[in-house]
């Protein structure tokens, strides 16, 4: 069987859900005949036509607000931000309008906002950011970041079917690098459930998306030292699967959080706080974090690599933690 890339998995999810439900439609910049900046929707315009694969003008706020209107009319918009960084231009619509509608007057807002995010490409301060914490802080948004093609497929399909707004973070670096064989048929991954990717007994790593893969590589290194690392792919950041996290912490007693977003007030701070509040009796060391240094992302690739939380830094942090 042929392998499917992360990007192809996204395209498959979009196509299958559009096929299944005539209310599902795509909106974004350059997504129609061109297929989007990363070609995630390539071929769908030809199949579903101009009212279901809509090229918008160069706007984010207006597109997100329009998607909200369509969702309130019973449709299921899937919106692509050309790069995650540009979602800041639609921030107000997301955090004030989209996120609060259900709480305020109980109208469901079935909407997915896809964010191709992350660094590693030397793309500079405005095409490299990891914005998950901006949204995880807002009640009413589901925030997900799959790390594998299978979860990209299964979680996007689940996100499109869910009656709530989902911020869907797709790592650009994984788009063409991650591949795996995927089953035929309706592949669904539940939202709100973490996955223990590698089980271990000495240290727990909590991560997602690109840094999940770096954490797995670091865990291989630690295994050579005889340290058994459990690696958990959070997959959904909000709402958080505390059960899976706390069960692991109670087993290993040590926690390292790894994320690509900048350190201060990053989502790792939330994880450390929850582990501290609810598992302190089990902890045998500090909850540590490996994250991007508190700087914008530099353009020069060597400078960027200096700040990215890759496998070497994770390995060092794990070794230090293992010594407690």
């Amino acid at each position: 069987m042929a392998e499917t890339t992360y990007l192809d998995a996204i395209r498959r999810a979009l196509g299958e859900e559009m096929e299944r439900d005539a209310g599902v439609f795509l909106m974004g910049q350059d997504i129609a005949a061109f297929g989007g900046a990363f070609r995630a929707s390539k071929g769908l315009y030809e199949k579903f036509g101009r009212l279901r694969v809509i090229n918008t003008p160069l706007m984010e706020s207006g597109a997100i607000g329009a998607a909200l209107g369509a969702a309130l009319a019973g449709h299921r918009p899937v919106l692509e931000m050309q790069f995650a960084d540009f979602v800041s231009c639609g921030f107000n619509q997301i955090v004030n309008n989209v996120a609060k509608t259900y709480y305020r007057w109980e109208a469901p807002v079935p909407m997915v906002i896809r964010l191709p995010f992350g660094g590693g490409a030397g793309a500079g301060p405005f095409h490299s950011q990891s914005p998950e914490a901006w949204f995880a802080h807002t009640p009413g948004l589901c925030v997900v970041a799959p790390s594998t093609p299978r979860d990209a497929l299964g979680m996007l399909k689940s996100a499109i079917r869910d009656p709530n707004p989902v911020i869907f973070l797709e790592h650009r670096f994984l788009y063409r690098r991650e591949k795996e064989e995927l089953p035929e048929g309706d592949v669904l991954t539940p939202l709100g459930k973490a996955r223990v990717v590698r089980s271990g007994t000495d240290v727990t790593v909590l991560s997602w998306s690109w840094t999940l893969h770096e954490s797995l590589a670091a865990a291989d290194e630690l295994a050579k030292d005889g340290v058994s690392v459990e690696v958990i792919d959070l997959r959904t950041l909000s709402p958080l699967d505390e059960e899976t996290i706390f069960a692991s912490v109670r087993k290993t007693s040590k926690v390292l959080v790894v994320h690509e977003a900048t350190l201060t007030a990053g989502f790792g701070a939330e994880l450390a706080a929850r582990v501290g509040e609810q598992c302190v009796e089990w902890l045998d060391g500090p909850v540590r974090r490996v994250a991007y240094a508190d700087r914008p992302s530099p353009y020069n690739k060597k400078l960027e690599q200096r700040l990215l939380p890759g496998r070497e830094r994770i390995t060092r942090a794990l070794r230090a933690l293992a010594r407690y």
Partner: peptide
């Protein structure tokens, strides 16, 4: 709830 009924 801040979310409509479902797995989220």
């Amino acid at each position: 709830p801040v979310f409509a009924p479902g797995e989220v």
